[in-house]
Design a binder for these strands. Structure first.
Lengths: 177, 177
DNA sequence: TTGGACATGTAATGAGTTACATGATTCT
DNA sequence: AGAATCATGTAACTCATTACATGTCCAA
């Protein structure tokens, strides 16, 4: 239901598959993941469906690339997806599932599991914090004078900061217990 | 990588596919989802691999059912999965992805999107809260005298309560802005 | 007797992962 | 010359969703 929509969202500006993968890693990566081997066929399919158009373009570094542009039909599809409201309760959170069954392993292993989890949440929090710092340094309008585009990015960023902060505390509480 | 492990975890006590689906809806549903049409073949595969054994058993209500039991090999597989540490950064959270691109729709639509999101978080919080209340009513040992099994369930429940509470507040903040 | 919960599956399709394959360009 | 990065893909496989198909047992 979804990589296509993510790509349509990212193709706000024309880009090649390789570039899209890089943007992925810097932003959407925190809540969506895709391999290049999934991205290329997805782009081809979107083009076949008329949501994107492409043209070969010389690259500044490396071989020539296939740059995709979102068509009006692609934009419409994206807007319909968004206007239909949030896609809810489809998340699959492996670590919570594991935690739910964690009584199947020893107490020592449970603790190191929770420590690893805490460390990862802390790392994610730190990543977001530094993204925020960089943004603030580069953009004088941050965080109060943002355009719509920046506003929703900021909201997304903030949800991560709040969530990971709570989750780190929660892990500490679990470990302490 | 995973429905199999979830099933192995739930087969702590023998159960049929139909029963497992019901347990799913009551517990794991908050962080994992599976259709019956996915569960049945997964159980069959686990049996073929020697992780489960099954036998046909009469039901109190309805036709006879196929009750699966976890074998020692199945238990070992589960423990290895858990001992390998948390499966991290594989979550795909559709609503955050949508939010990230939400500047593509009108302000009015953005607000109703956030309201719907907030209402769902609030509903999830309420579901967990009532699960906690029921548990407390039925179990005199709740929450301080829990066995390992109950302890990890409580930890999981608590993570959801904390997370959804923060997310509701965050939505409010977004809407107010 | 009919509707609902109980019970188990298959088939077709779509989405995602892992492994493989190829080649251009740039930097050292 | 060799390594790193840039660039695009295919193939085989696994996992997940949607639609279909079938049938039992019980209560109203």
């Amino acid at each position: 239901m979804s990589l296509s929509h993510v790509l349509l969202g990212m193709l706000n500006k024309p880009a090649s598959g390789y570039e899209l993968k890089q943007y992925f890693e810097q932003s959407v990566r925190h809540f969506w993941y895709a391999e290049l081997s999934q991205i290329y066929p997805a782009l081809a399919k979107l083009e076949k469906e008329g949501m994107l158009s492409s043209k070969k373009t010389a690259s500044d570094k490396g071989p020539s690339k296939k740059v995709y542009t979102r068509t009006s039909s692609g934009k419409k599809e994206l807007q319909e997806w968004l206007a239909a409201g949030p896609v809810l309760r489809t998340e699959r959170i492996a670590y919570l599932t594991q935690l739910f069954f964690l009584d199947e392993i020893s107490n020592a292993k449970r603790i190191s599991f929770m420590e690893e989890l805490r460390d990862d949440f802390a790392a994610r929090h730190k990543e977001l914090k530094s993204a925020e710092t960089n943004w603030a340094a580069q953009d004088p309008g941050f965080p109060d004078q943002l355009p719509d585009t920046g506003l929703v990015k900021h909201m997304t960023l903030r949800s991560g900061l709040l969530k990971y902060a709570v989750m780190v505390e929660w892990c500490q509480e679990c470990i302490a217990f």
